[in-house]
Each structure stands twice: as C-alpha cells, then as structure tokens.
Design a protein around this nucleic acid. Sequence first.
DNA 1: TGTAATCTTGACTAAAAAGTAATGTATCGC
DNA 2: GCGATACATTACTTTTTAGTCAAGATTACA
Lengths: 163, 163
Amino acid sequence: MKVSAQEEYGLRCLLQLAYLGKDEFLTLTQIAEREGLSVANAGKLLWILNKAGLVTSIRGTKGGYKLARPATEIHLNEIIKVLDEDVLAGHCKSYTGVLDACVHTGNCGIRPVIVGLHDVVQRALSGITLAQLIGTEANVETTLHWIQGLSRPPQAGTARKKA
Amino acid sequence: MKVSAQEEYGLRCLLQLAYLGKDEFLTLTQIAEREGLSVANAGKLLWILNKAGLVTSIRGTKGGYKLARPATEIHLNEIIKVLDEDVLAGHCKSYTGVLDACVHTGNCGIRPVIVGLHDVVQRALSGITLAQLIGTEANVETTLHWIQGLSRPPQAGTARKKA
DNA sequence: TGTAATCTTGACTAAAAAGTAATGTATCGC
DNA sequence: GCGATACATTACTTTTTAGTCAAGATTACA
C-alpha cells in the first residue's frame, strides 16, 4: 500500500500551479526545476494531468501550464484517481497468480478489505483540496486537522504541556 | 495507492493457514495450489512470513506451515507492514527526482497528507483480524461492517426496500 | 542408514513501472 | 514567413518489483 512515484510527483506539480495567481503560468522547465525533476519527466506528468482536464496548457512562446479550475475546487481524490488509473477496478484482474483468473473470483474473503480500504482512502482524500496544501508544513498539518478526524491529532490523548 | 502483489498473495496464504484446525499444517504445494500460485512463489512468500514470525514451519516429511499465533490475534496492519517493508519510512527518501534529496525536505505541503493517509490505513487495518476474514465474502463484508465505520455500509443513506 | 518429502536460501530471469529521448505541432515576435 | 520557444506524443532505456530456479538442509520412516 504505497503512494507511487507518479502520484507523488504529479501532485507536487499541481501544487506548484496552485501557488500561481490568476493569469500566471509556469513552463515545464520552471515546474521541473522547482520540483527537482527532469524536464522530460515533468512533461510526461503534465501531459497526463492535461489529458485528464486538471490543467490547462498554452503552447508556443509565452506558453505554460495553469490549473484548469481554482485550487479550492480540486479535491485530492480526483487527482489520485487520474494519476493511478483506477487501481481498484484492475485489482482482481491483476492478481491471478499463474492462472487466468483469481481462484477466489466470486467469493473472496479479502476483497471486502481491499474495497473497504480503497473507500477509506478515497473518503479521506475527497475531504482535502489542493488549496489546503498551500503554506508551510506545520500550517497544512493544522489545517487538515488530521484528515477529517479519521486520524488522531498528534497531541490528542497523550497531550502534556511540556512532556 | 495500490496493494502490491506481495501484500495480496501474502495475505491470501496466511488466510489459507487461518482455516486450519489446531495441529494441522499445509505444505507449500498445497498452499500454492489453493491460491493458484507457483510453488516457488508461494515458497518465497512463506519464507518472508516465517522470517517475520507470523508463521511457523516444520521441515522434513510431514512438514508444512501453520500460523504462529491464533488467527484472532493476528491483525492485518502487522501483516501488511511485514509484506511492505515499512513503506512510509522510505517515502521521502525515494521520491527525490533527479536530486539527492527531496527539494521539500523540512517543509513539505503534501507530507501531512502522506502521513495522515498512512495512519488512516493503519488504523483501519488494525481493527481487523485474520479470523474475521474467514467465511464467505458476503459474511466477511457484514462482519467488517465496513471497517470500523470509517467507510459507509452499502445501503446506508440510500436504503430502500426494493429500489 | 538411506531415501523421499519438505522447507531454506541466494542467484537468476521476466515483467512492470519509472524515467528519458527524440520527433512533431502550435504560437509568438520579428 | 521564419526562427525561437514551448507544449504533445510516442518510442525507447533504465530501474524496480515480481517471479523462477536450483542447490542445500532437515526430518520421518522404512
């Protein structure tokens, strides 16, 4: 259960665009530089994001990328879904061992876990917008108040004034 | 954000062992057959699980594997952690782009999301034991009542007698 | 004691994901 | 129009993950 490179970097590129003012753009080169990526790699990521309608691109001199919608209206679940190619749909089709279909097809004890887990993650991500990730790490942490209360705040329960 | 092959198959092998009665064993060949895996692949997975202390092995004729503890005392978060090699710890170290360290080291807007997400998943998994995954898919689904209420039951909110 | 069954382990191979390169297309400014 | 700049797209290479193979070690039982 890990966040893939594509998810991580794609999200980071979007966040760079979220920092822009209205009518501002960033070129691929600028995005790549700010995220420590190669221009080629950033290009591929932005292409995916563009195809999915999350960013708008302008070609030619003076061109660049910006968000297709305000950062307050882009939720992380949508972003992850795009960068992930709907992983849940392919799960049972992928993990078939040496056979053509999973032996548990139709009656699988762990499928409810996979589905439920995916749902939990989606739910947490759908409560967060790109706009909420702008700012310092400490501020973002506070803003998220630990993802809709699904996760505990660091101090709850063990809170002490000075430890 | 996807469940890897190692997590999926490892969990499935453990679940096979959870079905055993006391003092029963399964050989690699049996496990492989029941899960549609090659014997070699099952061997590697069980080796990992054995190293981690989740299963006990007996060598020689009449040998095989069984759970090291009762299925009621093995929680999924422990299993996933073993099959995953603690993915959270390596996250920021892995995704550094073309640089030696992530440009956001020390102040990262998305790190709280990664950490929070991991925590949400861990929390959901820690509420489920192997024993709860025994039975038909429908029964398991009911038993989990959608992972500690973190996820909605299928009928809640839209429930109707006949639709 | 010997042999067949079974787990153990590390090296090897194959498949998938990640990342790069190269070629093409659009736009701007002269 | 022409060249410079920047996005678009596909093919290719590298790296990581997944999976296989083969030789070794342990045990039961005749």
